[in-house]
Structures are given as C-alpha cells and as structure tokens.
Design a binder for these strands. Structure first.
Lengths: 111, 111
DNA sequence: TGTTCATATGAATATATTATCATATGTTGT
DNA sequence: ACAACATATGATAATATATTCATATGAACA
C-alpha cells in the first residue's frame, strides 16, 4: 500500500536496521505523543494553518490550561513550533513528518 | 522530506481532510499502541521474520506473561497476526504499514 | 504603575497502563 | 488419562498520564 505510492521499500528496510535499544525507546516516546486524542486534535487543527492558543481552545472546546499542557508536550517533541505575536503565542506544525505519520496511521485504520 | 521519497503530498492532504472526532480518537488509539517500548521492541523483532512467543521473550529478555499481554494489544490493533503451530503460537507483522509508520517516526527523530 | 488580556506552570486528583504473580487453557506424546 | 511444554488470562500493585484549579509570567496600553 505504501509501495503503491512510491515509498521506497529499500529505504524503509534500511531505516529500521541496526536500531539500538535507546533509539527504540525514543521511537516509543515519539509515538506516545501521537497517542492522545487531545494532541491529535491539536495537530489536526494546525493542519489548516497556524493558530494561537485561544483559537485552538475554541476549536477543541477545551480548557486553556489543558491545551497549554499538551502544547508543551508537542513542542518538546518538536512536532510543533511557536512564536510570539504581541500577547499571543502562535503555533504551527514543525514539519511535514507530522502529516505523513498521521496519514500512514489513517491508512492503516481504514482497512 | 517525505516528498523527497516520492510520497504524494496531495494524497496526504486528502487523507487528513474531513476527519471525524471518532476517527481522531481511533488514530490516537493506534499510535498509543506504538507508544510503548516493549511493543516497539516486539515489532522490531518481527521485522526479521515470524517468531514464536518464547523466541520473542528471549529476544527481549522479558517475562512471558508481560510479553503475551503486549502481544494481545498488538493483535487487537491488527498490527500483528498469529497462527498456531503445534504447541507454539507464531507471530508475524500484519502488513507493511507497520514498517512504514515506524520508518517515518525514525526519520523524524533523526533530525 | 496598574489593569487587562493571553499564555504558562505547579500541585493535586482521577484515570489508565504496565509488569508481576498465580493460574487457566490448549497441545503433544506416553 | 496424565505429564510436560507453550501460551493466555485475571487480579493486583506500582507507575505514568491527563485534566482541573489556582496562580504566575509576560505583553499591551491607559
């Protein structure tokens, strides 16, 4: 299915060779970040462009503090980036990996 | 970076459009499964081919019960498949999504 | 400087998750 | 039918995680 889209199988095999125990734990840590519905929702909101905290709270219909706590986790994992604009903090996806990883997950679910 | 490998950006954008709240929760559930070092280790062992439970326990140097509990979670998420062979249960990766998802995660970490 | 708006953070509680232990189930061979 | 082996499962205890509440920080502006 991935190959169907031209994703290089040899590259994948290379990527998953010779992985140390530490790297495996880092990987688990990364996926753990995706493994929470609040955080996934935040990422989806940011798919549509950058947003400030209040906008994210409104989109999720959630408490500002809860959202900020999760934003911190996403920032720490470098999945999102932030910059200040006056009083507001603007958040955006850090790179395209986020979209790709989530798209692959969605493909799996849809089968 | 993903595009560099020929992964179709339009396809990705389509995959992440119009996602319901339920689908987002399912996605989070899926990633949660990847988000544990024991389970990631099991998946990596299975990258090298199918294995029975005892072999997986040896590879991970872990208690059989702990491994079986995690195998169940991986089975439920359809990330691995099992079949019986005599007394033993043989486990294998269910499909290539697993490799692809993990490879994408690894790419992210390596930057 | 004081007030308001926007966001971040610490502490506490509630909930979820994992590994362990004990035991059950299922298979093979005697 | 019974013993030995392989795996699964239920209950428990230890740990991790998310949300809430209260409060702190920081920017803008009168």
């Amino acid at each position: 299915m991935a190959a169907k889209r031209g994703y290089d199988t040899k590259t994948i095999d290379h990527l998953i060779e010779n992985v140390s125990e530490n790297e495996l734990c880092d990987l688990a840590e990364l996926f753990k970040v995706f493994g929470d519905s609040t955080r996934i929702k935040i990422l989806f909101v940011l798919f549509h462009g950058e947003k400030n905290v209040t906008e994210i709270c409104d989109a999720l219909d959630m408490n500002q503090s809860a959202v900020s706590h999760q934003l911190k986790i996403l920032r720490t994992s470098k999945l999102i980036a932030s910059r200040r604009e006056g009083k507001a903090m603007i958040y955006a996806l850090a790179d395209d990996h986020v979209k790709t990883i989530i798209a692959m997950g969605k493909e799996h679910i849809e089968e």
